[in-house]
């Protein structure tokens, strides 16, 4: 009988083995209040999933999302925050921030934008420019 050598211990890999991306259509958030929208997003994020949201949050909702996120960092285990990026259609026509000033961000209708949100424990960084979003994973 051959003597079996000791099997080398497998190193624990910190790399993500799989990633769930949840799509939230605009119709799902359309009738929700700002608080409910933020709550819905954070519930998905806390499940370690990424979100592709059809549409975007209003600026006041984004600050609410940041506030609620910050309130949870340090209180929810392994939660470090979020990464998010929104891309708007034809954003180069008026300039990225120009739209806000012209009030077109609202007039265009929120559902024409795409928002990507991910937990910071999975997403290291989101790089964006007016035409693309790069998602860098941990």
């Amino acid at each position: 009988m051959k003597k079996r050598g000791k099997m080398p211990k497998k190193k624990k890999s910190k790399k993500i083995k799989g990633l769930t991306i949840q799509f939230i259509p605009y119709i799902e958030i359309e009738r929700l209040s700002s608080g409910e929208r933020v709550k819905k997003i954070l519930n998905v994020i806390l499940g370690n999933k990424m979100i592709i949201l059809q549409g975007k949050l209003w600026p006041e909702e984004e600050t609410r999302l940041i506030e609620d996120t910050m309130a949870m960092v340090g209180h929810v285990k392994n939660f470090k925050g979020i990464e998010l990026a929104t891309i708007n259609p034809n954003s180069d026509a008026l300039g990225f921030f120009g739209k806000f000033k012209h009030g077109l961000a609202r007039a265009l209708g929120a559902q024409e934008s795409i928002t990507i949100i991910g937990p910071a424990s999975i997403v290291r960084e989101m790089k964006r420019d007016p035409k693309k979003i790069e998602v860098m994973m941990r």
Partner: peptide, 17 residues
């Protein structure tokens, strides 16, 4: 650095509102 960060967008959006 890249000026198109979401934080900048959020701040500007709120100030305009």
């Amino acid at each position: 650095k890249n000026p198109y960060s979401q934080v900048n967008i959020t701040i500007v959006g709120n100030l305009i509102a």
